[in-house]
Design a protein around this nucleic acid. Structure first.
Length: 882
RNA sequence: GGGCGCGUAGCUCAGUUGGUUAGAGCACCUCGUUUACACCGAGGGGGUCCGGGGUUCGAGUCCCUGCGCGCCCACCA
């Protein structure tokens, strides 16, 4: 029954984590409430991954939301699961193969896929165990994986529907090619980085003329693929050259000189080399002018046969040699330093090679418009809403989405090419014969889909779509999405577009975007920097509950958080504080031989009871309001303050003394336990483990707790009550106690000596029993006198409600106010004078009186009266003391 | 080149629609082991809310501007 002296989370957390799962507590069926439905899907972590600190923040915020809704009686579902993470996973397994001296081509596609699945089975569960430790109240019976049969069917269904509507097309276009990943990637999978490079100026001779044109380029190696030079149509310098022919240096190929508006006459020489095979702009220009395309760089970023003597060289080696050759031939006019903007693969940072290839694309314009409309009309709300600007900006400029990947791990594109008639058939299931020519010579497309295609279906594919399942009907659209801002374009917007297109409804009603967790120096956390924080070690060290509240309290809406150890240490102390407060209560339950839950209405006889009741009620209102508006840090802050500084520091301190003084301590239990139990429930979403442990102990100690439920997580979340709680003099009492402590500290009085004191009360009275408590808390033998202070001896502190006078026993200080007190009073006088002056000025200002709300004016008048009374008292004091 | 955000105590940050003496945690100083807790308690010091201008009766909060940071987007070779 008695609690251990220190809280050791390791003793309890694994137990409850397991119990919650074993009892299936978080299946929504367990709580078929009638207070509505709350559903949310986890942003599926990569199977290859392990939990990092960002996940922990994300899951904690989600869990707070989920537990709150569940306790409010809503039918609550949190769907867990993982993403197959195409490129990432394939790379991990390939690395492993490489260590064994193997590569995927040696194994063949089928065997390779088998190996990845094997790997997934082996390591994929790791992250789930980590999520369990976080206390995330997900429904494990509904766990999904993006490559599950059901979800794969959803992928094919979505693909076919988009194809049938003409929203998917296939063709030869320029894409971002990563030579290292050996696949095309989408625009959002590239990052732009500036690097210092050069702008090489190269001279191209004009055929049958003495003239030549100088062209500036950052990529001289591509000149071998040049098929034209371009100038602006109206550039007067080059009007006479339109339609003429230029000679490509080094290899002396003849190329056209064309006019196109893409050229900026003001940049460089106003002449641009056109390489349709290796530059997105040039590709467009090439199409407009029907230019030939010469591919000089291949998929491995090496020069092709078309590059002649440079064949086989890496693109950067070729660059060096070509520059050298141009220099030697005198065709290099100059080299000027230049900051180049490079497109890199976001995954491996390899410089992208723009290449033309046959890929599958999704037409985005219409889908994006629908998604924007959903936000504009308020059907989807962003929290914080300033992120909407970025969302709109991106959606307005969206380009078609390249969804094919030249990988083996992923959803294979449901398209079959006929060797006989060369037609392509898109279908949900593999056709036996070609519907065009009845040939059986069919082969499925080799490419797989971008991972984000399947995760874009996640909110409904996990619920059984395309079937009209009960889950889909009940839980879709989901209520809320909580995720990082960094995947707004990758994931959030795709879910919105695909969700609207596939289901006709939004995938979620609200999107809460949290910030990044950074290290103590505000650095981004990354493996390469070596500043990663392992949440498992963190949970071992501080306890999961402490980590949760520590993260939450530092995480304000959308802002990044700097994770510092001292915050976690303080959080651990907070858990320990709660534990010890409980220890005190349990100790006294035992002492008073209480064996059942106290009954009867909440007793307000003692001023601390009415006070704490009102404070808890305010905290309850504030926490509920904060959670409603996704201000999780505010809710956590409110609770922290209530539990530690109100419940522990004031309420329990007073109650301890009551227990001691009173002959029948039972009288106090109804109040203390009622508040405590409510506080545990209020705290539960934030610190589920310790509150479950304490609540279970409480329920077992006092079994008749009304309507028993098996877990605090299924108990009702407190709601603020509307009825008036009697006002009390407790705040005045607090002031009296504080004033006494200040006087003692200021004047360096003997901390232990009990000193005589007088409280001159202005109209408000403390009961004798309250005076006894003041005595215990301040070591003052307090006498209470109605009226104002008459003789000035002793140490005095004044408030609007009372004057406190201490007759110091020590000869050195007897009868005088110490220097510290004089300083303090002088400071107060100055502040009061300032306030009074300001208040008076405002109150005599006609405009203020006529324009400020009455509440503000009245408030200021009251304040002024108080200031003046206090100022007078303080002045009298100072005067009297010389 | 566009866009977004930030600058508040020594450090990390709160501060809902403008409302009168700007808060927290940590750190710091002083005191205190009264049987829940030293992972504790009490008290204290510390801020021209980045600079400048404006709107307003009133600005940390709204507008403009300067400075300093951070991030995102972008096909000027």
């Amino acid at each position: 029954m008695l609690l251990e002296k220190a809280y050791e989370p390791q003793k309890f957390e694994p137990h409850w984590a397991q119990w919650w799962i074993e009892t299936g507590l978080y299946r929504p069926e367990r709580r078929p409430g009638h207070a509505g439905v709350f559903s949310i899907v986890i942003p599926p972590p990569n199977v290859t991954g392990s939990l990092h600190i960002g996940h922990m923040l994300e899951h904690t915020v989600m869990d707070v939301a989920v537990r709150w809704h569940r306790m409010k009686g809503e039918t609550t579902l949190w769907v867990p699961g993982n993403d197959h993470a195409g490129i990432a996973t394939q790379m991990v397994v390939e690395r492993e193969l490489a260590a064994q001296g193997l590569n995927r081509r040696q194994l063949g596609r089928e065997e390779f896929e088998r190996r990845v699945w094997q790997w997934k089975e082996e390591y994929g569960g790791r992250i789930n165990n980590q999520i369990r430790r976080e206390g995330a109240s997900v429904d494990w019976s509904r766990e999904r994986f993006t490559m599950d049969p059901g979800l794969s069917r959803a992928v094919r269904e979505a693909f076919v529907r988009l194809w049938d509507k003409g929203l998917i097309y296939r063709g030869e276009y320029m894409v971002n090619w990563c030579p290292r990943c050996q696949t095309a990637i989408s625009d959002v999978e590239t990052v732009h980085e500036s690097e210092s490079g050069n702008l090489w100026h190269i001279r191209y001779a004009v055929k049958d003329s003495d003239e030549s044109l100088v062209v500036a380029t950052t990529r001289p190696e591509t000149m071998l693929g040049d098929t034209a030079l371009a100038v602006h149509p109206e550039d007067p310098r080059y009007l006479h050259l339109h339609g003429k022919t230029a000679i490509l240096p080094l290899i002396h190929r003849e190329i056209r000189i064309i006019a196109d508006v893409i050229v900026d006459p003001k940049f460089g020489t106003g002449v641009v080399k056109i390489t349709p095979a290796h530059d997105p702009n040039d590709f467009e220009v090439g199409k407009r002018h029907s230019l030939p395309s010469v591919k000089v760089i291949d998929e491995d970023a090496r020069m092709t046969a078309a590059a002649g003597q440079y064949q086989g060289l890496d693109r950067f080696e070729a660059r060096k040699r070509i520059v050298a050759a141009l220099e030697a031939s005198g065709e290099l006019v100059k080299t000027e330093p230049y900051t180049v903007n490079l497109s890199k693969c976001s995954r491996c940072k390899t410089i992208i090679e723009p290449l033309v290839s046959n890929q599958w694309f999704v037409r985005m314009r219409g889908l994006a418009d629908a998604a924007m409309d959903a936000v504009r009309s308020g059907r989807i709300r962003f929290v914080p809403d300033d992120r909407e600007v970025v969302f709109f900006q991106w959606m307005e400029n969206i380009r078609d989405w390249c969804i094919s990947r030249q990988l083996w791990w992923g959803h294979r594109i449901p398209a079959w090419h006929c060797h006989n008639c060369k037609q392509t058939t898109v279908a949900r299931e593999a056709p036996a014969i070609c519907p065009h020519c009845q040939s059986t010579e069919l082969e499925q497309d080799n490419d797989v889909l971008d991972t984000w295609f399947s995760s874009g279906l996640w909110p409904f594919s996990t619920l059984g779509w395309p079937d009209e399942t009960e889950d889909l009907k009940k839980y879709y659209p989901t209520s809320l999405l909580i995720t990082g801002f960094d995947i707004l374009f990758f994931w959030v917007s795709r879910m919105m577009m695909l969700g609207l297109e596939m289901t006709g409804d939004v995938p979620f009603r609200e999107v809460h975007l949290h910030g990044l967790v950074r290290d103590a120096e505000k650095q981004k956390i990354s493996k390469t920097k070596g500043n990663t924080v392992d949440p498992l070690l963190m949970m071992d060290k501080y306890g999961t509950d402490a980590c949760r509240i520590g993260l939450l309290i530092s995480a304000s809406a959308g802002a990044d958080i700097a994770l510092k150890d001292d915050r976690l240490e303080a959080s651990r102390a907070f858990a320990n504080k709660l534990w010890n407060a409980s220890r005190l209560l349990f100790l006294n339950i035992e002492r008073s031989k209480l064996s059942s839950w106290p009954s009867g209405p909440f007793p307000h006889e003692h001023f601390e009871d009415a006070w704490i009741h009102a404070r808890l009620n305010e905290a309850t209102a504030s926490v509920n309001a904060a959670l409603r508006s996704h201000r999780y840090h505010e809710a956590a802050q409110t609770l922290w303050n209530f539990v530690w500084h109100e419940f522990c520091d004031w309420y329990l301190e007073v109650k301890k003394l009551r227990f001691k003084e009173d002959s029948g301590p039972d009288a106090h239990w109804t109040a203390a336990l009622t508040i405590y139990e409510g506080m545990l429930r209020l705290l539960h979403p934030f610190m589920p483990f310790i509150t479950e442990e304490l609540w279970q102990r409480l329920v077992h100690a006092l079994p008749s707790l009304s309507k028993p439920v098996e877990s605090i997580s299924l108990a009702a979340f407190p709601a603020a009550i509307a009825e008036k709680i009697p006002a009390t003099e407790f705040p005045v009492f607090q002031q009296a106690v504080t004033a006494a402590r200040e006087l003692r500290a200021d004047n360096k009085l003997d901390a232990k000596a009990i000193l005589p004191a007088t409280i001159h009360v202005h109209g408000k009275l403390f009961k004798d029993e309250d005076l006894a408590i003041i005595k215990s808390l301040t070591r003052l033998e307090v006498r209470q006198i109605q009226g104002t202070i008459s003789e000035r001896s002793g140490l005095i502190r004044s408030t609007p409600d009372f004057d406190l006078q201490i007759q110091a026993a020590a000869p050195s200080t007897n009868g005088t106010v110490g220097a510290e007190s004089v300083a303090r009073i002088s400071k107060e006088v100055a502040a009061l004078e300032r306030n009074i002056e300001n208040s008076k000025r405002q109150l005599s200002d006609e405009t203020f009186l006529s324009r400020a709300p009455e509440k503000v004016v009245a408030g200021l008048r009251t304040k002024l009266v108080e200031y003046e009374a206090q100022l007078k008292k303080n002045r009298d004091l100072l005067e009297g003391l010389g």
